[in-house]
């Protein structure tokens, strides 16, 4: 374990009946990096995240966050962690602001934090609406806002792009990048979307059937992609890739004016 490790798992294993969801998983997430946990549906991403957050107990192995073993009985370490697990949920009878205020009080964040995250996540127009009446995208934004309200040192996000439109995905990607680059926030993010991960992560762990099968460094990945692109892609494939990028640019320009 390196000294700047924020999340460490050693031999982490979890079974549900006969199904092994996570199998002898060793991983390390370092301070200030964005670590993407990439895998297909059912690969064990969410189960790993739940064990990191103390929501479920490992069958074997251990999880350390900020160097301390995760114990559900001593939750002080959760003050430094913001999370979004699977679908974003909130108290449907409370407004966006009330949901965030409830979370703020229980995490001990300063009073202005709620207004800040509402602004940051573009929830101004929805702030006084009940959470139960929000669109899927705004529910996801509320979930992210709640994860951020107490300015955590570690963000653990499970499929954060769920329900967001393309502009929203780019926006959240920019926000996470700036949190890591400007504030030193460590981000552990799971996804099954390759493009999403490729744009965002410093390191990528590929998980398959509960095992970590590969760890990739972004710089090495970019270099490999360039070499591959130069050597292997046909003119038609390059044209298709450019077309996709152009479409994304047009979509963002016409629907939002700019990427916030």
């Amino acid at each position: 374990m390196t000294t700047d490790a924020v999340v460490t798992t050693r031999g982490l294993t979890k079974r549900f009946g006969r199904v092994t969801a996570v199998d002898d998983l060793d991983l390390e997430v370092r301070r200030g990096e964005i670590y993407a946990f990439l895998g297909r549906n059912g690969a064990g991403k969410t189960t790993t995240i739940r064990m990191i957050l103390g929501l479920i107990r490992p069958l074997a192995g251990e999880v350390r966050v900020f160097g301390e073993p995760v114990r559900s009985g001593r939750p002080e370490w959760l003050r430094r962690v913001g999370c979004l697990v699977e679908t974003a949920t909130a108290y449907p009878n409370l407004t966006v602001r009330e949901n965030l205020e409830l979370h703020r009080r229980l995490t001990g964040a300063p009073a202005r934090a709620v207004a800040n995250v509402i602004e940051q996540l573009g929830l101004g127009d929805a702030a006084e609406r009940r959470a139960g009446q929000l669109s899927l995208g705004n529910k996801q934004r509320l979930g992210l806002a709640r994860a951020l309200v107490h300015a955590p040192d570690l963000l653990v996000l499970d499929e954060p792009a769920n329900g967001l439109d393309p502009a929203g995905i780019v926006e959240i990607r920019g926000l996470l990048r700036s949190l890591a680059d400007d504030h030193g926030t460590t981000v552990f993010v799971s996804s099954h979307i390759l493009v999403e991960v490729a744009h965002l992560a410093d390191r990528i762990g590929i998980v398959h059937e509960g095992r970590l099968v590969e760890e990739l460094d972004r710089a090495a990945l970019v270099a490999a992609a360039r070499a591959f692109s130069a050597a292997q892609l046909t003119e038609q494939q390059r044209a298709d890739a450019l077309l996709t990028l152009e479409l994304e640019r047009y979509f963002l320009a016409r629907t939002d004016g700019s990427v916030r």
């Binding site: 103390g54 939750p75 370490w77 697990v85 229980l106 709640r146």
Partner: peptide, 14 residues
């Protein structure tokens, strides 16, 4: 309402 996971990841003794 699916909020148990929110409640249980707060820095509050259960």
């Amino acid at each position: 309402e699916g909020t148990a996971k929110v409640m249980l990841t707060l820095p509050v003794p259960r």
